[in-house]
């Protein structure tokens, strides 16, 4: 997916992206001359393997937001955090898109379940093997951005057929599915959109499904600049109270609405 409002652009590339705060850049941290006068030339970074800017010359102006962990080390870390799981807490896998590392996610979830740790997954629902994870999840949280395949393809970059299929399966097979509509101005926020979503949900076996509307925000916008990209979404303005109005429409359909 390439959602123009993505809040975690650092995960768009599967190899990760250097995040830069130009105001804190120091030229000397790059021996290859990629930083001149506190400006970074990322084309030089493409061929750099030593990455001294985040190792030997680590600094406040550049960070690499990804780290590699073995599943075993993650389990150990989770077990150390056991005291935080008071009152039904556990581990939520999120992203980016966690299922892009499907095998590792499956292994991790299996190990967590074997340790009796509560599990949840936040996903965009695009992975065709998503249903294999259902038995390993106490809570499944899926986004549904648009009901119309053409608009989904046009704006987000891929169609929604796999997503719809996974949602329908989850509604039947999974005990606790949350469907979230990220409310995006000009994309899915009209009254008609609300009715269309509601009608879709009503066709599901929706007794075990909870619906939540999330208001558009721009908390991730600054990260686009830090990743060397321009924030593509131009019409980001949701009026005050729109989320509530939208939710009120959905309420009329007697859906199970939640607000976390």
């Amino acid at each position: 997916m390439r959602c123009p409002w993505c809040s975690n652009p650092e995960g768009l590339s599967k190899d990760g992206t250097l995040m830069v705060d130009e105001g804190k850049l120091v030229d000397a941290v790059c021996p290859n001359g990629a930083i001149q006068n506190q400006k970074i030339d990322r084309s030089i970074c493409l061929s750099c393997h030593s990455r001294e800017c985040i190792t030997k010359n680590k600094n406040l102006g550049i960070r690499f937001p990804c780290q590699r962990y073995s599943v075993k080390s993650l389990i150990a870390e989770v077990q150390r955090a056991g005291s935080l799981f008071y009152d039904g807490g556990g581990v939520t896998l999120t992203g980016g898109e966690a299922t892009m590392q499907f095998e590792a996610v499956k292994e991790l979830l299996s190990a967590l379940k074997a340790s009796n740790i509560n599990t949840a997954l936040e996903t965009n629902g695009t992975h065709p093997r998503l249903p294999e994870l259902f038995p390993l999840l106490d809570t499944l949280i899926m986004d549904m951005k648009h009901y119309e395949p053409g608009i989904h393809q046009q704006v987000i970059g891929i169609g929604n057929s796999v997503i719809i299929g996974n949602i329908k399966k989850a509604a039947v097979e999974h005990a606790d599915t949350w469907l979230r509509i990220p409310l995006i101005p000009g994309f899915n926020d009209s009254d008609d959109d609300a009715h269309q979503f509601a009608n879709f949900f009503k066709q599901l076996s929706y007794e075990k499904v909870s619906i939540e509307v999330l208001a558009y925000h721009e908390f991730g916008k600054v990260k686009w600049n830090q990743c060397g990209m321009e924030y593509p979404f131009k019409n980001g303005c949701l009026s005050n109270g729109r989320r509530k109005e939208y939710t009120d429409i959905l309420k009329k359909y007697e859906l199970n609405l939640i607000h976390t």
């Binding site: 010359n57 600094n59 406040l60």
Partner: peptide, 19 residues
Amino acid sequence: DETLYQYLRACEKYGNNIP
């Protein structure tokens, strides 16, 4: 010596659950 200063500031810090 902003370079060394930033290096030291960027080292791992207490309070972030780093063993």
